[in-house]
Design a protein around this nucleic acid. Structure first.
Lengths: 202, 202
DNA sequence: ATAGAATGCGGACCTTGGGTCCGCTTTCAC
DNA sequence: GTGAAAGCGGACCCAAGGTCCGCATTCTAT
């Protein structure tokens, strides 16, 4: 049952690669001029080692992404409001999307690299499915909202890595402004609908 | 001023390539297994000719896309409602987005190929700028709406080629259902805001 | 019509980068 | 210590985009 622990050097190399890749992706201008050979060289290992550990480029990207995402995942699944499960849906939706946006702003190159890594659409990626499932579930809790599945996709689409990159980079939109705009967009979406009922105590 | 007309054979070859590429992209499963060599072979020309005529892969894709987009562009710029300029903003926004969606559904492979063609984000593409500019302008005409620029991006993001492809392909969402969902999303977004004014005569 | 220049053709060739292979080395269990 | 499993590394392979240049076609001026 102990799952066959990996050898010491293998584990060490894996970490070295992760660290090196992390550094390269944050420093280099565009993700596509970080080649696998670069990563291997920077980590001081051979290409074979790299591919043995991560399968392929997408695998490496995924591992990096997953590692960075971990804290947020926890905050969403078991943390305090406004991200955690105790938050009322109307407040949690904007909070979730803001979290996604902030994450992509903090990991621009990496998110970009992952989303354009070819190898199938980003929509099959495990982490996307997780965000989508979460958002979908929360949207379902809001009365009068139909098509939660599609709406979750549509809202998440507003935080696509290349859009964020374009706005932050080419257009020079500052972080806080972008967050405000997204919040505004989301709020506007949520504010509509069957307002027949009590408009809440706010 | 006659702009140096191109030679007869050049023009003919250009058309041949366009036709061949068009056929290949609609028939083949995934856009990325249509190689430039394939296109050249199918058109019965050499690779040199292909690259001379279109510059690079993205250039070819753009030319194809542009050709298919032309009719819609006209319908938007000078056609009858609900796409044309005479339409009231509240009705034109959904119409525009529906047109984008339908276009992408009708040209799935091509749109996909173009958006993932690497070579810079899709946001710098001429056709995207056109859609965005148009939508932006129409949104600005709706009272009480701020951040038209961002909102245009966010709404358009819901029609991203890979999302459409995923929903239509993997999830098997039928065309009309998707249109309805998008319409629903857009309407919900528009319906909100300062409803203080007259709720229109509907 | 025809010569000669300009334009274009085609496919061999180059480059780049992801991914594989396999002889050698390191680690681990006994 | 020893044998074998696990891992290493970098030479190698391949696909695909893009270039190059000797040859063919077309245009233009006389």
């Amino acid at each position: 049952m102990p799952e066959r622990r990996s050898r010491k050097d293998a584990a060490r190399n894996r970490e070295a690669v992760l660290a090196a890749a992390d550094a390269l992706f944050t420093r280099r201008e565009s993700p596509e001029d970080v080649t696998m050979a670069d990563v291997a060289a920077a980590a001081g290992v051979g290409k074979g080692t790299l591919f043995r550990a991560f399968g392929d480029r997408a695998g490496l990207l995924r591992a990096l992404y997953e590692a960075r995402l971990e804290p947020i995942r926890e905050a969403v699944e078991a943390g305090p409001p406004p991200l955690g499960p105790a938050t009322p849906p109307q407040d949690r939706v904007p909070a979730l999307l803001d979290a996604v946006l902030c994450f992509k702003l903090d990991n621009r190159r990496l998110a970009l690299a992952l989303e354009e890594s070819g190898s199938g659409s980003p929509y099959q990626a495990e982490h996307y499915e997780w965000w989508h499932g979460m958002l979908h579930a929360v949207l379902e809790q809001i009365p009068g909202l139909t098509d939660g599945d599609f709406n979750a996709h549509a809202l998440l689409a507003a935080t696509r890595a290349d859009l964020v990159e374009y706005l932050a980079g080419e257009e020079g939109v500052p972080r806080e402004r972008m967050r405000a705009q997204l919040a505004n967009f989301v709020t506007r979406f949520l504010a509509s609908g069957p307002l027949e009922g009590p408009p809440a105590e706010e």
